[in-house]
Amino acid sequence: MDMQARPFRSVLYIPGSRPRALEKARGLPVDAIIFDLEDAVSIDEKESARETLAEALQNDYGPRTRIVRINGLDTPWGRADAEAVSKMQPDAVLLPKVSAPQDLDSLAIITGDLPLWAMMETPLGMLNAPQIAAHPKLAGLVMGTNDLAKELQSRFRPDRLPMQTSLGLCLLAAKAHGCKIVDGVYNAFKDSEGLRGECEQGRDMGFDGKTLIHPAQIDVANEVFAPSQEEIDLARRQIAAFAQAEAEGQGVAVVDGRIVENLHVVTAREILAKADAIQRIAAE
Results as ranks from 00 to 15, higher is better:
residue 57 L to I: 06
residue 118 A to C: 05
residue 245 A to Y: 12
residue 232 I to F: 04
residue 40 A to I: 09
residue 94 L to W: 04
residue 33 I to C: 03
residue 56 A to V: 06
residue 3 M to Q: 10
residue 47 E to I: 12
residue 42 S to Y: 08
residue 163 M to I: 01
residue 215 P to Q: 06
residue 31 D to M: 09
residue 248 E to K: 14
residue 42 S to P: 07
residue 27 G to K: 09
residue 223 E to W: 10
residue 29 P to I: 06
residue 100 A to Q: 07
residue 262 N to I: 15
residue 117 W to P: 00
residue 209 G to Q: 02
residue 136 P to I: 04
residue 156 F to H: 15
residue 119 M to A: 10
residue 276 D to P: 00
residue 211 T to F: 01
residue 284 E to R: 12
residue 36 D to L: 08
residue 89 Q to R: 15
residue 60 D to C: 09
residue 199 C to L: 02
residue 281 I to G: 00
residue 180 K to Q: 07
residue 48 S to L: 12
residue 237 R to Q: 13
residue 31 D to W: 09
residue 183 D to H: 07
residue 49 A to C: 07
residue 176 A to G: 03
residue 160 R to G: 00
residue 137 K to M: 11
residue 265 V to A: 07
residue 194 G to K: 00
residue 166 S to K: 00
residue 70 I to L: 07
residue 11 V to H: 09
residue 200 E to Q: 13
residue 68 V to D: 06
residue 63 P to Y: 03
residue 121 E to I: 03
residue 202 G to R: 01
residue 257 G to R: 10
residue 7 P to Q: 10
residue 169 L to S: 11
residue 237 R to I: 03
residue 234 L to G: 02
residue 257 G to M: 11
residue 168 G to A: 02
residue 58 Q to C: 05
residue 182 V to F: 02
residue 82 A to H: 05
residue 164 Q to C: 06
residue 267 T to V: 12
residue 222 N to E: 11
residue 244 Q to K: 15
residue 222 N to Y: 06
residue 157 R to T: 15
residue 72 G to F: 11
residue 252 V to D: 01
residue 135 H to Y: 08
residue 99 S to Q: 14
residue 274 K to P: 03
residue 107 L to V: 12
residue 176 A to K: 10
residue 258 R to L: 13
residue 149 A to H: 01
residue 127 L to S: 06
residue 10 S to Y: 06
residue 144 G to T: 06
residue 17 S to I: 01
residue 167 L to K: 12
residue 216 A to C: 10
residue 139 A to M: 12
residue 96 P to C: 02
residue 128 N to C: 09
residue 5 A to F: 01
residue 143 M to Y: 10
residue 39 D to P: 11
residue 220 V to A: 01
residue 76 P to K: 07
residue 1 M to A: 15
residue 279 Q to D: 14
residue 238 Q to V: 12
residue 19 P to L: 13
residue 102 Q to L: 14
residue 75 T to I: 07
residue 36 D to K: 04
residue 130 P to Q: 08
residue 231 E to W: 08
residue 282 A to R: 13
residue 221 A to N: 04
residue 212 L to S: 06
residue 193 E to F: 09
residue 14 I to P: 02
residue 50 R to A: 02
residue 235 A to M: 07
residue 148 L to R: 02
residue 95 L to A: 08
residue 69 R to H: 10
residue 81 D to H: 11
residue 256 D to Q: 13
residue 30 V to D: 08
residue 20 R to Y: 12
residue 166 S to R: 00
residue 76 P to D: 10
residue 190 K to V: 08
residue 226 A to E: 03
residue 56 A to Y: 09
residue 239 I to F: 10
residue 27 G to D: 14
residue 223 E to H: 12
residue 75 T to S: 15
residue 52 T to R: 08
residue 236 R to P: 01
residue 67 I to D: 05
residue 27 G to E: 14
residue 205 M to W: 03
residue 1 M to K: 13
residue 212 L to T: 06
residue 114 L to F: 02
residue 110 I to P: 02
residue 208 D to Q: 04
residue 132 I to P: 02
residue 159 D to R: 12
residue 125 G to Y: 05
residue 157 R to Y: 12
residue 282 A to C: 00
residue 118 A to P: 05
residue 211 T to I: 06
residue 116 L to R: 00
residue 192 S to D: 15
residue 145 T to E: 13
residue 173 A to E: 04
residue 98 V to H: 00
residue 165 T to R: 11
